[in-house]
């Protein structure tokens, strides 16, 4: 890593962990915490979708894993009395395992076929949450306690959220930390031989397998990592809202995850983060338009597709800028 990149990363971390909390404290706009926390969590999910794009699959099923992760965390906290901190990785792992089972058959599909199945998966997950008794059907799971204390060898790392003066800030810092970790992992994947192999899959699966790449394994691996991200994001969302319903993540959310990636650009690791920020903030700002919010948002989207059908960051490509 060269100095310039190192400075960029340092600047980014400074902005996320120092500038933002300072700015919010100074302006008194505490509601921005919720928005930015959501952006951070959604961009973790979008990072997963981006990784599936990276192996050449259009994934419109991330909402399903966010929902699953949320329920796993909620059920474990409420029924088994496990600490939120332990449920966080468990939610991710549960999603990864499920995605392996689902991925083995469906990752053989390509293009719109894979896209269709993943979209169906989102809806089926919602219906399953409605039908099962462990998820408590349409009533959902509510009154989930805030995350408790996280301690290691008697040393308190994160204090009990319920005792905090400002849990909003704490959730923001938690989400931002997870986001930074996720993108660091993603960056490492893409810039190691692993990413090279993923790109070989994206560009030509047959050739990849003829040079000895275990394409089936790599596809499932990428999809499992993607779903792990989705599950983590869902679990934290549930901790914030202290409740989860079958409609907490629906088809629209899955489509949005895909949009974040696409808007940010598929050739850039930090594209999904940028896309999430722009779209989520855009949507939030449009709330002043009240009932016209969706109309303006969708019109803007359509106009954008007409103007730059290859994605916003394709404008950069024209100038010869590549990763």
């Amino acid at each position: 890593m060269n100095t310039q990149k190192l400075l960029g990363v340092a600047g980014f971390l400074f902005a996320v962990f120092v500038l933002v909390p300072w700015g919010i404290a100074a302006s008194g706009r505490w509601d921005f915490y919720y928005t930015l926390t959501s952006v951070a969590l959604l961009s973790i999910g979008a990072a997963g979708v981006w990784l599936t794009f990276y192996i050449g699959r259009i994934n419109i099923g991330q909402g399903a894993y966010a929902l699953m992760g949320g329920y796993v965390s909620a059920v474990l906290i409420m029924k088994a009395g496990i600490s939120f901190w332990a449920t966080l990785p468990l939610a991710g792992l549960f999603c990864a395992v499920i995605s392996v089972l689902i991925g083995l058959p469906i990752l053989r599909l390509r293009g719109v076929y894979f896209a269709m199945v993943t979209l169906v998966l989102t809806e089926v997950t919602r219906l399953t949450a409605l039908a099962l008794s462990v998820t408590n059907g349409a009533k959902g799971i509510t009154s989930i306690p805030l995350p408790g204390e996280l301690s290691l060898f008697g040393l308190t790392i994160v204090p009990d959220f319920a005792t905090m003066q400002n849990p909003k800030l704490a959730f923001y810092l938690l989400a931002a930390t997870l986001m930074v970790l996720s993108y660091a992992a993603l960056w490492r994947i893409v810039n190691s031989r692993l990413g090279h192999l993923c790109r070989s899959l994206q560009q030509n699966e047959e050739l990849a397998s003829s040079i000895g790449v275990n394409t089936a394994y790599l596809r499932v691996l990428a999809y499992a990592i993607s779903s792990f991200f989705g599950g983590i994001a869902g679990a934290v969302f549930v901790a914030i809202s202290q409740s989860i319903y079958p409609s907490s993540f629906v088809v629209t959310d899955s489509v949005n995850f895909m949009l974040y990636c696409f808007l940010g650009g598929l050739g850039y690791v930090f594209g999904p983060m940028l896309g999430t920020l722009l779209l989520y903030f855009g949507w939030d700002l449009l709330s002043i338009a009240k009932q016209y919010q969706l109309l303006i948002y969708s019109s803007a989207m359509i106009a954008l597709m007409l103007a730059v059908p290859n994605g916003v960051l394709s404008l950069l490509d024209r100038k010869g800028g590549r990763k």
Partner: peptide, 17 residues
């Protein structure tokens, strides 16, 4: 059949799998 969006050298490197 090659990996179109990689350079010649990248193509060969990835083929060392």
């Amino acid at each position: 059949t090659i990996f179109k969006s990689m350079t010649v050298r990248e193509n060969i490197i990835v083929a060392h799998q």
